[in-house]
Design a protein around this nucleic acid. Structure first.
Lengths: 210, 210
DNA sequence: TTGGAAAATGACATTCGTGTCGTTTTATGA
DNA sequence: TCATAAAACGACACGAATGTCATTTTCCAA
């Protein structure tokens, strides 16, 4: 009588497989990736992998959940590290630029591809909506903090500006992954957006005069 | 001796197949679509379809070219129909809103999916770059006309603002197709963007005062 | 050290779309 | 009307990935 290995080992093997899957996804794209590919990349046997996941879709969903969990507390973190909301947003934009430059090496194109192909299906649709609502409300909350502190006097509802932020983010990522950060002038576009945001937020101090 | 049918008939049959393909793509997505699906949708036989196209990829490429050809002269058309560049841009934004509302019924999600999955491959990469360069230069040219006419005094290079326009466009479309125009507040976002654009362009007249 | 239960293996049958190709149909010119 | 060449058809063989499962290996507890 004896479960042969347990908990930690099982969990770490799961992680191992997921990492192999992500490598394959990044290299080939989500839809071009087969169970066969992941099996080979992981170095395990076919049966072994199937013991943990029975499709690339399951793997993708697990990876998405994992990524979501990591991004959870990003907003509070930002506020903790910066004195003003304006600075927090600047930092966010700086981080975004960094992300755009290296976008092809990471998971974002894969996530993009997955959602672009699977939005029709409930499983992914629900996940998408959760992610969107969460991203919007986190950023909107940030804006409201700035509003309460007297940093901003927004010309439009925080919710709308937050949604615009998300849309522009998505657009930048799509274009950066397809044309490269250089060709789409990531730096210039982010600067343009910084100016626009200041204007829309009615940032106190410098900002909105001609 | 006689080629049995010719030119027109052949061309119209080709169109017919492409239309069937597009219906399948819109219904199921590009990657979920198989030659079998298109054959069934078109009502022709397997061999008949293969006489014209030997993969869904060929069909997609043909459809993309067709769409590109249609969008060719859009910019001049706009200028012809509006007295000022500002009005032309407003009209463009209005048209965009309309597009966002009905986005799920049209080809845009399919195009998005295709590029999100295939950007790694040269065939699509080249096409993408052509489309991007063309979109950017068309819009930048529009802005320069406004500048020359004294309508604008841009705070940033026209090229950068044009690229921002394209990115935001792409982001809006991505979000609209995934969450619906309602949930992502298409109208509000476009209004926010209209304000931002006015500000960035330093539009003469109203615009940029607090 | 050994018995046994879970984990891991990989060969195999199955499924599904692909592409081909011999046959049939169709449309013209003679 | 007929001959004929192209167009359209659809059955079939092929290939690739899937998912299973009988067998082997591994690890713990007694």
């Amino acid at each position: 009588m004896s479960p042969k290995v347990s908990d930690e080992h099982r969990e770490s093997k799961r992680k191992e497989i997921l990492q192999a899957a992500m490598r394959v996804f990044i290299r080939q794209g989500y839809h071009a990736a087969t169970m066969k590919d992941v099996v080979e990349e992981s170095g395990l046997s076919r049966g072994g992998v199937y013991l943990y996941f029975s499709s690339t879709e399951e793997m993708m969903l697990a990876l998405l959940e994992e990524m979501d969990r990591e991004n959870e507390n990003q907003a509070e973190e930002l506020l903790r590290r910066h004195r003003t909301v304006g600075e927090a947003i600047d930092s966010l934009l700086g981080h975004l630029l960094e992300e755009l430059v290296h976008i092809r090496e990471g998971a974002i194109p894969v996530v993009f591809e997955t959602f672009a192909a699977e939005w029709r299906r409930q499983t992914f649709g629900r996940l998408l909506e959760r992610r969107y609502a969460s991203a919007v409300s986190r950023f909107a909350e940030l804006l409201r903090v700035g509003e309460r502190r007297g940093e901003f006097r927004p010309r439009l509802p925080a919710e709308t500006i937050a949604k615009m932020f998300v849309s522009f983010n998505d657009g930048l990522m799509a274009d950066a992954m397809q044309f490269g950060a250089e060709a789409m002038d990531a730096r210039g576009q982010i600067e343009a957006y910084r100016l626009s945001l200041r204007y829309l937020l009615g940032a106190a101090g410098r900002a909105a005069e001609a």
